[in-house]
């Protein structure tokens, strides 16, 4: 089954991104496909290459990056929400790409299920 995932919140204020990552990983491990993960609202902050969390905690951005690397998951950051928050092409960690909101609607159409994680 193809899942689309929407992440509404940034990496550390809320658990949303962690929950979305755990869900995505479990889905892939069970043989499902993640059609796309779309980052919107403050969720765009999950894509920043400048995050350096303390070494004794998980690295949310790296988790996503690794998922993209290992399983070719499409990680898309909303351009409009990103520009508002200072997330532009140059800010992106490897594995993320920036594109329009239409990519979210398209994921809703193409994926079998759309799951939202937010505040």
């Amino acid at each position: 089954m193809k899942f689309g995932i929407l992440v509404n919140e940034g990496p550390y204020n809320h658990q949303a991104s962690d929950s979305a990552y755990r869900f995505a990983k479990a889905a892939i491990d069970k043989g499902h496909e993640i059609y796309r993960v779309f980052f919107y609202y403050d969720g765009v902050l999950n894509a920043t290459k400048h995050s350096e969390p303390p070494s004794d905690d998980r690295n949310v951005i790296k988790n996503w990056q690794k998922l993209a690397e290992d399983h070719k998951v499409d990680l898309v950051v909303c351009v409009a929400a990103g520009f508002r928050r200072g997330i532009v092409e140059d800010s992106l960690a490897p594995g993320f790409r920036i594109s329009g909101l239409g990519q979210l609607i398209e994921a809703g159409i193409q994926a079998d299920r759309m799951v939202t994680f937010g505040d």
């Binding site: 351009v79 409009a80 329009g100 909101l101 239409g102 609607i105 398209e106 809703g108 159409i109 193409q110």
Partner: peptide
């Protein structure tokens, strides 16, 4: 809408809320 997409030609119509 600065990132308005082009008309979608996929043909699938879903109920969005």
């Amino acid at each position: 809408g600065e990132d308005m997409e082009e008309e979608y030609e996929g043909g699938i119509v879903k109920k969005f809320m």
